[in-house]
Write a protein that binds this DNA or RNA. Structure first.
Lengths: 159, 159
DNA sequence: GGAATTTTTGCATATTAATGCAAAATTGTT
DNA sequence: AACAATTTTGCATTAATATGCAAAAATTCC
């Protein structure tokens, strides 16, 4: 049969256009195109096309043609790198982990220091949050450890 | 049960590591972790996680967590890319860095928005913390940028 | 063309997945 | 803590999907 290839083609376009949720519905639509096959064949077709059924946000199932790449972003987890404290007001320590900087201060000092860091409007930083004695700073992706160290040396002792 | 979210996480990691092909096998593996649920529950879990079964190159079926580009495409076809207007109040910006999301708001709005995000109880999120104008959200390991973007589009404009 | 070989299909059925419903567990409220 | 409201789950069953096998088509080879 020369039909199989055409049918597979048609199935793809039907699945992309309509919201098909099961193989019987698909068979029905194919029939309206003059193609008459059983559910068993469609099961094989969908397997060949790697079509899968997935839940939509509406709570119903629809067929999609998934990407063939298995995505796995692995988290970069660098070890902590501690730096001895100096005599900056309230400063206790600064540590890096991945793209996060954690600054510890004596109690009550964190908000003030965080404010200063915020006000620098550094493009290296996408956000800071301060508790009473801890500041979390999220660095922009791609910022190197050295860049960060250089920047933070404006605020705290970094040797 | 507080177990559900843990189970969902475990399911994700099991599916990514092993080649699971049906819900009974999954149940069996979960049982080896001390988690005992029925196939019915797993069907619901997989629906919630948008896990789908797809033919591998070996000719067998395995579960995967599909690429969200495809999902978004099919969502867009269904015309569901609207953002509830009430949930944009005070929003300023959203940025990603590694597994951290930083949302900036106008002063005072962060706690409310963070609360809404918390209440969504997304399995993608490990935790959130809010200051006055900034929210930090830590994503679960393995959550792709696309997945995250899709999720946060429920809360803030992402275009 | 015709026999041999490979591919595709339907049938019947086994396997797998989804769901209505009531009960149990959890969460929210006061 | 007690009650109400919501969520989660299992059971039982239905719905949907996959597949062994034999037959029908298509393809290849002489």
């Amino acid at each position: 049969m020369r039909n199989r290839r055409n049918r597979l083609q048609l199935i793809i376009s039907i699945i992309k256009k309509n919201n098909i949720g099961n193989q019987n519905d698909l068979a029905r639509i194919l029939r309206s195109y003059g193609i008459d096959v059983t559910q068993a064949t469609l099961s094989r077709d969908l397997k060949a096309l790697k079509v899968t059924k997935v839940a939509s946000d509406k709570g119903e199932y629809i067929y999609i043609i998934p990407d063939n790449n298995e995505l796995q972003d692995s988290m970069l987890q660098r070890g902590m790198h501690s730096i001895p404290s100096g005599q900056q007001a309230g400063f206790v320590s600064i540590n890096f982990s991945g793209n996060i900087v954690v600054i510890k201060t004596r109690n009550g000092y964190a908000p003030g220091l965080a404010y200063d860091i915020d006000m620098s409007k550094s493009p290296l930083i996408i956000g800071t949050i301060a508790g009473a004695d801890t500041i979390f700073i999220v660095l922009k992706e791609g910022v190197s450890r050295d860049e960060a160290i250089h920047f933070f040396s404006r605020f705290v002792p970094m040797d």
